[in-house]
C-alpha cells in the first residue's frame, strides 16, 4: 500500500493493483455450458509451463497459453470475443469494486491469534497466559460441543473485500489504484469484480 494526494491535498491510502492486460481465452454460453461467463487469461506463459489440457484449449481457441485462467460470470457474453484484450481501462475512477484474494497465511496459530481470544495475566503467579482455558462443562453434557474454537491453521483462505472505490486508473501501465487494503501478500493474485454485479477482471497486486 501507499498513499496519494487528491487535488485538494487530501491524503488517500491506496493499494496499487496491476490489472491485466487479460486476454479473453474462452466464452461460456447458456446453450452449451448452462451458464454464461468469460474466461480470462493473465500472464502469458511458455508452453512448457502450462498443463496439456489448458495448452490444447488455448491452441484451439487461437490464443496464447496463460499462467492464470479464471472464469468470470457475466449476464451476457455479447461484447466479448476470444482473443480480445482487457486492461485496467474497463474501470473508471469512482467505480466500486469487490476484491477477492487469498489472505496471508499465519501458520498453525493459537486461539489468541486465530480467534481473538483474550490472554491471561503474565504476572501474579498465573500460568495460563496463552492457553485456551476451559473448553466445556462437566459430566453434563460430558463432551465438547462441535465448533468449539481451538488452535488451528489460520489465514491463507479466500476472502472478499467489498465496496472498494477506485481512486485512479493508469491504462498505459495497466494499473488500478484502489482505496484501502486488499487480501494477500505483495505480488499476490487477486480478482477484481464490479461490486456485487459480476463484471470482469483478473489482476495482480
Amino acid at each position: 500500500m501507499t498513499q496519494i494526494f487528491r487535488e485538494d491535498g487530501m491524503v488517500v491510502p491506496v493499494t496499487v493493483l496491476e490489472a491485466g492486460p487479460c486476454t479473453v481465452t474462452g466464452l461460456r454460453t447458456g446453450e452449451r455450458d448452462g451458464y454464461t461467463a468469460v474466461q480470462l487469461g493473465f500472464i502469458p506463459a511458455r508452453n512448457k509451463h502450462v498443463h496439456k489440457p489448458q495448452r490444447v484449449a488455448a491452441e484451439k481457441a487461437g490464443v496464447k497459453p496463460h499462467r492464470v485462467l479464471k472464469e468470470f460470470r457475466v449476464a451476457d457474453t455479447n461484447g466479448f470475443e476470444v482473443g480480445q484484450e482487457l486492461g485496467s481501462d474497463i474501470f473508471e475512477v469512482g467505480d466500486v469494486v469487490d476484491i477477492i484474494g487469498t489472505t496471508k497465511g499465519k501458520g498453525f496459530a493459537g486461539t489468541i491469534k486465530a480467534h481473538g481470544f483474550q490472554r491471561g495475566s503474565e504476572t501474579h503467579g498465573c500460568m495460563n497466559v496463552r492457553r485456551p482455558g476451559s473448553i466445556g462443562q462437566c459430566a453434563y453434557p460430558g463432551r465438547v460441543f462441535k465448533g468449539q474454537r481451538m488452535s488451528k491453521h489460520a489465514g491463507a483462505v479466500r476472502r472478499t473485500v467489498k465496496n472498494l472505490v477506485i481512486e485512479a486508473v493508469d491504462p498505459e501501465k495497466g494499473l488500478l489504484l484502489v482505496r484501502g487494503g486488499v487480501p494477500g501478500p505483495p505480488n499476490g493474485l487477486i480478482q477484481v469484480v464490479t461490486a456485487k454485479t459480476a463484471k470482469i477482471k483478473g489482476g495482480k497486486n
Binding site: V16, L175, N187
Partner: peptide, 13 residues
C-alpha cells in the same frame, strides 16, 4: 519497495 509502487508514488511527489 516494489518498482511499480515507486513509479506510482513519483507521480504524486
Amino acid at each position: 519497495m516494489d518498482k511499480i509502487i515507486q513509479e506510482v508514488q513519483k507521480q504524486y511527489m
